[in-house]
Simulated assay, not measured.
Amino acid sequence: MRRVMVMDVFTHPIAQKYLNRSGVSHAISVAEYAVQLAIKHDVNPDLAAKAGLLHDIGHYEWYTNGKWDYEQYVKNDIHAIKGAERAHKLLIRLGEDRQYAKEIALAILLHTDSYLPENSIKKSSLQQIIRLADEMDEEPFGKHHYRKINREDAMKKIAKLDQEVERLIREYRKTV
């Protein structure tokens, strides 16, 4: 039995604040891709869904003279560090298993290497999945962060994602 559903995470005011900043549509798409990849790579789909949903909650809005400054973002971004911290705190607050919260936070921390001096860290399967799911949904110049989705459609997608994760977990339990 999952302690915390994806819907619990999605509807929490803290998640809403930062998901709206980084792009709800993008977050949901990455969560969906992450679950698909988790199935293929024998990774817990619940952790993949949550890490995919929360992977960009550390974004800072880089503006110069009231306009989005993509160059400043690329040059100064450390959103994965802040996002890992926010996600961990949120998940613990919601009652998530502490080890799962840590695994999700680490996947968020390592979903990009833009702030690392070199790409030399060996990543777990979950960490690799979140990076790949994010890349699958990217658009040039960060435009994926600005795609819109209305609240009703977002809630439907999250509910469907939770149902899929539940189904996958039930199927997995039957095999062990």
Rank of each mutant, 00 (worst) to 15 (best):
I92T: 10
H111L: 04
L94T: 02
H41K: 12
H88I: 01
N119W: 00
G52A: 03
A48W: 03
Y100I: 00
I81Y: 04
E32C: 03
I57N: 14
N20M: 05
Y63S: 05
G52Y: 04
G83C: 05
G83Y: 02
E32V: 00
D137H: 03
D77R: 12
E135Y: 10
L126D: 07
N119A: 14
H59M: 15
S25H: 10
V24Q: 07
A133S: 14
S124T: 15
L91P: 09
G23D: 03
R131I: 00
N119K: 15
A101G: 07
A49F: 08
N65K: 13
Y18W: 15
M136E: 11
G23H: 01
E85D: 05
R131F: 00
N76G: 06
A105H: 00
I28F: 08
Q72L: 13
A101K: 09
L91G: 01
D77P: 00
W62S: 05
Y63W: 04
R86F: 11
A34T: 09
W62C: 04
Q36L: 10
P13E: 13
H111A: 03
S125H: 05
V35K: 10
E139S: 11
K82D: 12
L54K: 07
K123D: 04
I57M: 15
G66T: 06
Y115F: 14
P117M: 11
